[in-house]
Design a protein around this nucleic acid. Structure first.
Length: 876
DNA sequence: TGATTCACGC
DNA sequence: GACGTACGTGAATCAA
């Protein structure tokens, strides 16, 4: 079906201008109307998917309507210069998007639209008109619909024939009669004075047209009304004529010339950049591959049921397609291979039966380029196949090049680098509930294209890494680490369902009691888990003082409730309820759901290409946030066990790794000496900040000092520190200042790293991990401050992540070399968890700290503490 | 389905 | 002087 979308350019631009505040770009050029217009345009394109598109503009000042009625559009405010400046930009925009625009001397946009709508409808088009002008409703018929902008710019209501009848009680073609009678103040059309919408509609229902009204003027009820009508007969007929859109204007464009290709050229990006439309630029990038869908050229993908040896050469790009997020359980949809002999697709079932293919997968000499190699490796491990020869991972590479842009679909990564002809998975398979696997041939084509794109992508990414001096980081750190993580995830950690169920039952009993108590104290039962309901009870029924508000109402967060302690006994109970409820829902019920029915282990997924600092994250389940601080929660750890009898859970953690890294990076003599001397770092900080001797440090001073250290590591603001400690912001700022005076090296580091970020646009870690900070020069104080704190914090946290990642690789190597049975199971940022047979405890107690402490040589010693026990709980 | 709020870890 | 404040994941609620 051909679909033509016609847009009244002038009308939409005007609306956009008045709907949005007067935005301007960094050169002081006004951009609000362009921005609003573009938003509308993109929305319409996305929703309507037009095959043809045209934007009509008014030409000049006078039109044929002025010849009939020279007061037409009289009394209008002159177009503000802030707006007229923007029209050339809009023309540029349309040209860059290859969208037809048109104006015609002596005619208005609506005549162009009306004429083209009629033509197109007769040629079998589905026509859609976008405007804010109700006059257009006269054009509505079975094939022509009008999207009327209601308010703002993107909020529209669609009018078909039925909708016009429903809204006005008249036929679309009677809209001109309506205008004839009631007039239109905005166009200075008089109509019949004293006749408004209500009366006009009543008349038209009876007489259909203006002419009808006058033909049967005697039948009009109401003496006054009849008088008014008779008095303004000519004016009414004239008004109708002026309101009538000329659908036979001498337009010189054909419908075919409005063909819209969904293409845009590079000028569009340049234009967006010039205008400062960052969000639209992002959108463009995000939609880029979908746009290319229409121009995607079919490539030759050979669907095979088995491979020949000639086809499986090295290097090859390999796609192991899975739609399920969780690769431990998910199905493989199919495989695609691309290399210099061609591009191939093979169904999963055939692939796994194809001995030659499986051998190839396991052959370390056959180099393979993947996207998210760990996903493929683990999925194949579950099928008894040991994927080897992984030479490149585009996911990890793009993560190192710019962590904020990793995680994107291959289509986007490729398009950005000039490799088009590929769709996003979301576009191909559909997203959310609409996701489905299309017929095999379509998928073969899609996956084949992905593999081909991946093959082309590799050298480009390697070059980018090289320019960043990040090749070692990829090939010696992240890529080997992925293999280690794959092993850890596949091994999993044994979890006792029985233990969890018993804890759950116990929690249920306690929760029941607490819930009852709360209802009793509140005098009413309600949903304690609903912050809204809880807020009403606490701050309205019980009249407690609301300390803080959220966007939607009262805040009931723990720090608020903490301050209300003692005001009412219900507070403690609510805090208990929250704490235990969390344990039950997240840690008992949640973990039970993810114990593998066959292995009895939980298999987490580490995301190695997500965090902006270089840390790992853990999902399904998250094993990096198992409770430890409060005893009730810590007991959850009793459910994590070694997988065999006579084994122990062994835990080793870095002591103060971030502060040691800081001492090294900042090269701060005082801080370095503290670590060399093996001092308790928080006590040392307290001594320096409060200017006291070691034995004068009170526990409060140490607590405050600890919070300051915490703030340094995490890059929190003085406000954040004041919240943490419950002190004023001023005092918090004073602490920080005192701290920096005591550690001048740190102070110097903080200043120079921010400078570096400003000039380079990014900061780096010990192993050359990068994080870009686009806000570092922002004029917005908040954005800039945040970027500055990030600049200070990321090298610290990120370098610590580098250290433990290196340690993991060395640890894995050593376990292999020494043929130890011990297995690495988990990583929790500064901690490694193993399971260890009793007879290896001694070796591991020596080996693990040794390796971790010397993973990377710093100018201060690294310290590792370890322990073991029959459960994770006991390894403390 | 997505936004909001809350809570857990480092 | 206001701004809205380390990084993550997950559950529950609520409004579309």
């Amino acid at each position: 079906m051909k679909k033509l979308v016609l847009i009244d350019g002038n009308n939409v631009v005007y609306r956009a201008f008045f709907a949005l505040p007067l935005l301007s770009n960094n050169q002081g050029m006004y951009t609000n109307a362009v921005y609003g217009f573009t938003m509308m345009l993109m929305k319409v394109i996305e929703e309507e998917q037009p095959t043809h598109l045209l934007v009509a503009f008014d030409a000049g000042k006078t039109t044929f309507r002025h010849e009939t009625y020279k007061e037409y559009k009289g009394g209008r405010q002159k177009t503000p210069p802030e707006l007229s400046q923007q029209f050339p930009l809009i023309h540029q925009l349309l040209d860059a998007m290859a969208i037809k625009r048109y104006e015609l001397d002596n005619y208005e946009a609506d005549d162009i639209v009306g004429t083209l709508a009629r033509k197109a409808r007769n040629e079998g088009f589905d026509v859609r008109i976008v405007t804010g002008d109700k006059d257009y409703l006269q054009l509505v018929d079975e094939d022509v619909r009008v999207s009327l902008i209601r308010k703002g710019i993107t909020d529209t209501v669609d009018y078909g024939v039925e909708k016009v009848r429903e809204r006005y009680g008249i036929e679309p073609r009677e809209v001109i009669d309506l205008k004839g009678l009631m007039g239109d103040a905005s166009d200075n059309i008089p109509g019949v004075p004293g006749v408004g919408e209500k009366t006009a509609i009543k008349l038209l229902k009876q007489f259909k047209t203006v002419e009808g009204v006058y033909d049967h003027i005697d039948e009009v009820s109401g003496k006054k009304l009849k008088e008014k009508l008779e008095l303004n007969r000519e004016q009414a007929l004239l008004s109708k004529r002026i309101a009538t859109i000329d659908n036979d204007s001498p337009v010189t464009v054909t419908t075919e010339s409005c063909a819209y290709t969904h293409e845009f050229n590079d000028q569009l990006k340049d234009l967006f950049r010039e205008l400062g439309f960052q969000s639209l630029l992002d959108k463009l990038d995000a939609n880029g591959s979908e746009k290319n869908e229409t121009e995607a050229v079919a490539i030759s993908v050979h669907t095979v049921s088995e491979f020949s040896s000639k086809q499986l050469v090295s290097p090859s790009a390999l796609i192991v397609q899975m739609l399920d997020e969780n690769y431990h359980y998910g199905a493989i949809n199919g495989f695609a291979v691309a290399n210099n002999t061609g591009t191939y697709f093979i169904e999963t079932e055939h692939a796994l039966k194809d001995e030659r293919f499986c051998k190839w997968l396991e052959d370390p000499e056959k180099k393979k380029v993947l996207l998210d190699s760990k996903r493929a490796e683990v999925a194949l491990k579950w099928r008894g196949i040991s994927l080897k020869g992984i030479s490149f991972d585009a996911r990890l590479a793009t993560y190192l090049i710019d962590p904020s842009e990793a995680g994107q679909d291959l289509a986007l990564l490729a398009t950005k680098r000039g490799i088009s002809n590929i769709e996003t998975d979301d576009a191909f398979y559909g997203k959310g509930a609409k996701r489905k696997i299309p017929e095999e041939d379509g998928q073969a084509q899609h996956l084949g294209r992905k593999a081909a794109a991946l093959l082309q992508l590799e050298p480009k990414l390697i070059q980018e890494l090289d320019e960043n001096k990040q090749k070692k980081l990829l090939f010696d750190l992240e890529l080997p680490l992925a293999r280690v993580l794959a092993k850890m995830e596949f091994t999993g950690i044994k979890a006792s369902g029985e233990t969890l169920i018993a804890m759950g039952d116990e929690l249920d009993r306690t929760l029941d009691i607490i819930e009852h108590d709360i209802y009793l104290m509140a005098g009413v039962s309600f949903n304690i888990n609903s912050p809204k309901q809880l807020g009403e009870i606490l701050f309205e029924k019980l009249m407690l003082p609301p300390i803080k508000k959220t966007k939607t109402g009262y805040s009931t967060a723990a720090d608020v409730l903490e301050k209300l302690r003692g005001r009412h006994e219900i507070i403690d109970r609510i805090l208990d309820f929250r704490q235990l409820g969390k344990l039950k829902s997240t840690y008992v019920v949640g973990l039970l759901k993810v114990i593998h029915p066959k292995t009895g282990h939980v298999h987490t997924c580490y995301n190695q290409a997500l965090t902006q600092t270089g840390r790992l994250s853990s999902t399904d389940p998250n094993l990096q946030n198992i409770p430890i601080r409060l005893e009730e929660g810590r007991k959850i750890r009793k459910a994590f066990l070694p997988s065999k009898e006579g084994w122990q859970i062994f835990s080793a953690d870095y002591s103060q790794i971030e502060l040691r890294v800081l001492a090294h990076i900042a090269d701060d003599e005082n801080l370095k000496q503290a670590f060399i001397d093996g001092m308790d770092i928080h006590t040392k900080t307290a001594m320096d900040v409060f200017g006291v001797e070691k034995d004068e440090v009170t526990s409060l001073m140490r607590r405050h000092a600890k919070a300051v250290n915490f703030g340094i590591i995490y890059g929190i603001s003085d406000y954040g520190l004041s919240q943490n400690l419950g002190i004023t912001r001023k005092d918090a700022a004073r602490f920080i200042e005192k701290y920096l005076q005591s550690y001048p090296g740190v102070q110097h580091y903080m200043e120079s790293i921010v400078k570096k970020a400003r000039s380079e646009g990014y900061v780096t870690t010990l192993l050359n991990r990068r994080r870009y900070l686009p806000d570092i020069n922002s004029r917005n104080f908040n954005s800039r401050s945040f970027a500055e704190r990030t600049a200070m914090n990321t090298p610290i946290q990120g370098s610590a992540a580098d250290v433990i990642k290196k340690a993991m690789i060395l640890m894995d190597q050593r376990l292999n070399e020494e043929k130890l049975k011990s297995r690495m199971l988990l990583q929790v940022h500064d901690e490694l968890i193993f399971e260890v047979p009793d007879q290896e405890l001694e070796t591991m107690s020596r080996l693990v700290p040794e390796i971790m402490e010397h993973a990377i040589q710093l100018s201060v010693p690294l310290k590792v503490e370890h322990s073991f026990g029959p459960t994770w709980y006991d390894a403390k």
